[in-house]
């Protein structure tokens, strides 16, 4: 019988790392404060004590060095899981992420590949200091050779992290900060993988599809609850893998409902919502009853925390967008 435990997302991530370190001696964890401190969010808690400083490594405070050396570690036969402490700081490592890690398979015509996972907390809603809350997923989804994933539940967090570690290509694993301790879920203790590249239908519905990922999935679910009490049946789809997108699942849902609202925290212009909307109208044009609508952050930098509640998409905005497409 499967042993399960009720875990938060951060515990599920910790358990995945623990399991990967225990199972595969090539796996190592590196980053800032991931050692004795256990990570600023405690994602690596206890791992340094269990696996030692050779495999759970506090690096100098240098993001490019973390990712760049992890590229070398991966090429040298290790399976590095690097942590960027907050996604907003990843620009320091942008060349190593984009031109190096993501492009080496291509540049070497398949001789080399980079099995590297870069974990990074992201998103708002937890009143961080400035630059700590940015959602930069669209920048990375634009990069060929890189996979970009983000879980919204503890179960998916563990299964997708293990799948990412096993993946032969670099994966940017985005962890919604506000969901780290937002709730608990039954999570098996054993190794399991949630395949990358597959969206998840969170709940089925007939009238409108709410498309969300990461921190916005619970918002979409709450909006669906609220819409249900008004007699509107909303389907909620968690995109989960942002690159490559599971357009098949998204298209199926929108073909059925004829209406779609895309919800993400990141700024609107050039955001992933634009890519999803463009792809859906190409694939499901004749099924659409209304324009595909987006509920997103605004086209400003992420604000100081005192203003973030007005900036972030919330249930009211999602409901309003759903009503707009329903009454178009």
């Amino acid at each position: 019988m499967d042993v399960v435990a009720s875990l938060t997302m951060i515990q599920a991530i910790n358990q995945a790392l623990d399991l990967a370190l225990a199972t595969d001696e090539r796996v190592m964890v590196l980053g800032e404060d991931v050692g004795p401190n256990g990570g600023v969010f405690r994602a690596t808690e206890g791992l340094y004590e269990k696996y030692g400083g050779q495999r759970v490594v506090d690096t100098p405070l240098a993001e490019s060095a973390i990712v760049g050396s992890a590229v070398g570690l991966a090429l040298g036969g290790m399976r590095p899981v690097a942590e960027i402490q907050f996604l907003g700081f990843i620009f320091e490592a942008m060349d190593q992420m984009s031109t190096q890690a993501s492009r080496l398979r291509f540049r070497s015509q398949g001789r080399h590949h980079v099995p590297l996972v870069v974990r990074a907390p992201y998103g708002g809603g937890v009143r961080t200091p400035e630059i700590h809350s940015d959602s930069l997923e669209a920048l990375f989804s634009h990069l060929p050779g890189l996979k970009v994933v983000t879980p919204s539940t503890p179960y998916d967090a563990k299964g997708m992290l293990l799948a990412s570690i096993r993946d032969p290509d670099p994966v940017l694993f985005l962890e919604p900060m506000r969901l780290y301790r937002a709730g608990r879920q039954e999570v098996p203790e054993a190794w399991y993988e949630v395949p990358l590249g597959e969206a998840r239908v969170v709940r089925t519905g007939d009238d409108v599809t709410l498309i969300a990922y990461g921190p916005m999935v619970p918002v979409a679910e709450a909006a669906a609850d609220s819409l249900a009490s008004a007699g509107i049946s909303a389907e909620v789809v968690d995109v989960r893998t942002l690159s490559p997108l599971d357009l098949e699942t998204l298209t199926q849902s929108v073909t059925k409902t004829g209406r779609a609202v895309i919800v993400h925290e990141a700024q609107r212009t050039g955001g992933l919502g634009a890519e999803i909307a463009a792809s859906l109208q190409e694939r499901a044009f004749l099924s659409l009853e209304a324009p595909i609508t987006r509920v997103t952050g605004y086209d400003t930098p992420f604000p100081m925390p005192a203003l973030e509640d007005w900036w972030l998409p919330d249930v009211e905005r999602v409901k309003a967008a759903a009503e707009f497409v329903l009454h178009y």
Binding site: M28, Q54, S64, A65, G68, S69, A70, V71, G72, L73, A74, L75, G76, G77, M78, P80, D95, Q96, T99, Q100
Partner: peptide, 15 residues
């Protein structure tokens, strides 16, 4: 950029 890759490769060899 390649200088960091060399460090990672060397580090992996050591490990």
């Amino acid at each position: 950029a390649q200088i960091l890759h060399a460090v990672g490769l060397a580090w992996a060899a050591k490990l």
